[in-house]
Design a protein around this nucleic acid. Structure first.
Lengths: 155, 155
DNA sequence: TATATTTGCATCGCACACGATATAGTCGTG
DNA sequence: CACGACTATATCGTGTGCGATGCAAATATA
């Protein structure tokens, strides 16, 4: 393909990913608003619902987010009484994040959200197999890109 | 799939899209820094390189961004002398955005970026056909999700 | 033509992302 | 034990995204 052609918006692979990401966050909004959550906050809860009491660092590893994003985010969630923050006794540098009753109780209310969102796509004739394939491709890209960006990140 | 299972991070489709989007922006950074551009600013230039002199509204339609995001972004670009903003004479409400010499000249310097980024993936054994397929799937999702969110947006 | 509605853009406030930097705690080595 | 290197978290500044709102110009409608 010509370089001229490659610069056209319609030929960029980066743009659809960027757009779909934002559109998905937008699609989540009405569901998450009912729980008084933002999308990144929901992601933190997803992680904690699987394993209560994780360090900020561990959460960051799972979500590929650095502490300069997570620290304020988690503090806002603490303010909303979704979780607690406690310095570890083993290592005073480590902050252990644990769910409160309230944070834990949201799990039930959120349990139907993934299916609801999936249905928006399936109702518009998207094949479930396409969703699976897409996820598989993206997961492999994460491995490549996360590894590639490790060196430049203040991890 | 059980609801319990669906709430696991590894089973979310939203998370890989969100992550890959951020990782791609991160991968662009070193290339765009050389041109003193951010990623969204680069997107605006992509649009203007195709068609100089567009209204803020038209740019927003192409990038799926609202004026509350675009207005300050475009003003920053004006400050960096990449473009000019002029009220249309036909319709005083409309602001026409046009490239400056400097903004136009960046096109050449940016021309190899898409291929450079693509190579990061291809060098890690990603098949080009997978890239094409992914783009095709995402493009169809954009149609679905953009339409779906039209009602809630302050367009 | 007067007025109500719509449209295009801008501003404000809040919540991310993230590079750069700071700080305190821990560890490794002499 | 001292001290330099490393680690975990936090803070700051800048630039998005976006809902809510404001405002002026254009358009529709009575």
């Amino acid at each position: 393909m010509e370089k001229e052609e490659q610069l056209k918006l319609e030929n960029q692979i980066c743009f659809p990913i960027y757009s779909v990401s934002r559109l998905i966050t937008r699609a989540y909004k009405p569901y998450l608003e009912k729980l008084d959550l933002t999308y990144p906050q929901y992601l933190v809860l997803l992680v904690l619902w699987e394993e209560n009491s994780l360090s900020v660092n561990k959460i960051g590893q799972k979500l590929l987010l650095n502490t300069n994003t997570l620290s304020p985010l988690i503090k806002r969630m603490e303010k909303n009484e979704l979780l607690t923050r406690n310095r570890s006794k083993d290592d005073e540098r480590t902050v252990l994040v644990s769910l409160t009753e309230k944070g834990l109780s949201l799990k039930d209310k959120a349990s139907s959200i993934p299916q609801d969102l999936l249905n928006i796509l399936l109702n518009q004739d998207v094949e479930f197999s396409d969703v699976i394939l897409l996820k598989k491709t993206l997961d492999s890209w994460i491995d490549i890109l996360a590894q590639d960006s490790e060196s430049t990140t203040n991890k």
